[in-house]
């Protein structure tokens, strides 16, 4: 069932505002909702007027919110790997590799993976208690990287699995020909090989995330009435198409904020469009958030969900 909602777009277009507004509207409509910020520079709590952390906090009836702590996820993950490494490796080897872990948190891809681990945790541990999970995402670059990660990593893992199978097959042949070979002391069966097992579990997890993004989510692009955010929306559309992730709606936020001319790209015309006028009085309370007119988008999501159930 489609129960996750993502808002994507250029930095500052209003993803947090629309995420909070939709979550509030759904909650006041009687749905149990969790709104989660994946942005390392959180402001979901500021928007909802509640101090948030990594665990769900009740905002009002039917609505919980959390701000994912990416640094905590990276540290947790590295610590678990380090402990496993100490458990499996001989002392001397561990001593050489241990110092290595200190710098791994800064290696490319780690932050994107931390977002994936957080989404996986929310989806498996928390989502069953809610009707909807609304994700407020980081700006485009990081969002596209974490959305593409399951597909790209999946390709790598598939190739590594094939190579591992070939290694295990060679080991089996050697042991069959020469049962006294040193190879016999190691693992020769797929069922005993921890590397093969780990590759399998990584593949399963990545496939589940791929399905979540492509089949169980509403992906909404947020744009402002300016050409730059439109160009970025096009890039998001192209990238998501490449990944096989369908778009659900286009949200034109801050309509009327300027008189500058802009043009909605033809490639985005087919998407259901929802417009939100710029609020000159500002948005200060949760009631202000609901009053921006989010109901049409909410109804669109509710009706789409019914048809895909």
């Amino acid at each position: 069932m489609r129960d996750s909602v993502f808002f994507l777009g250029k930095g500052g277009v209003g993803k947090t505002t629309l995420s909070s507004a939709l979550a509030l509207a759904l909650a006041r409509h009687g749905k149990r909702v969790l709104v989660a910020s994946l942005d390392p520079a959180h402001n979901l709590g500021d928007s909802l007027k509640v101090k948030l952390d990594g665990e769900p906090k009740n905002v009002e009836k039917n609505l919980d919110a959390l701000e994912v702590n990416l640094a905590w996820w990276v540290d947790k993950y590295l610590e678990e790997s380090r402990e496993q490494l100490k458990l499996n490796y001989s002392y001397n080897m561990t001593l050489n590799l241990d110092s290595f872990f200190g710098i791994l948190k800064y290696s490319p891809g780690t932050e994107e993976y931390a977002v994936l681990w957080a989404i996986e945790d929310i989806h498996s541990r928390l989502a069953p208690s809610y009707d909807f999970v609304v994700f407020d995402t980081p700006p485009t670059a990081l969002s596209l990287r974490f959305l593409s990660m399951p597909t790209i990593s999946g390709l790598w893992v598939a190739e590594l699995t094939k190579l591992r199978e070939r290694i295990l097959k060679d080991r089996q042949t050697i042991v069959r020909l020469d049962p006294d070979s040193p190879v016999a002391k190691g693992t020769v069966d797929k069922s005993d090989d921890k590397v093969y097992g780990k590759l399998g579990s990584i593949r399963t997890r990545l496939a589940a995330l791929e399905v979540l993004f492509s089949k169980h989510s509403f992906m909404n692009i947020v744009v402002n009435p300016d050409q730059l955010s439109m160009y970025e929306a096009l890039r998001i559309k192209d990238e998501l198409e490449r990944l096989g992730i369908p778009l659900s709606a286009l949200c034109l936020n801050k309509h009327g904020v300027s008189e500058a001319a802009y043009e909605l790209p033809a490639e985005l015309h087919h998407l259901p469009k929802f417009t939100y006028s710029f609020s000159r009085d500002g948005i200060f309370t949760r009631d202000d958030l609901v009053s921006i007119g989010i109901e049409p988008l909410m109804n669109h999501i509710l009706s789409e969900r019914k048809t895909t159930r």
Binding site: S81, N88, G109, M149, V195
Partner: peptide, 23 residues
């Protein structure tokens, strides 16, 4: 990846590393 060769994202390497002493 740690030596500049094309490789999967490093978090995959970190997940597999604890089981690869022999390798």
């Amino acid at each position: 990846g740690f030596a500049g060769l094309p490789s999967p994202p490093s978090p995959i390497a970190i997940e597999l590393l604890p089981y690869m002493e022999k390798e």
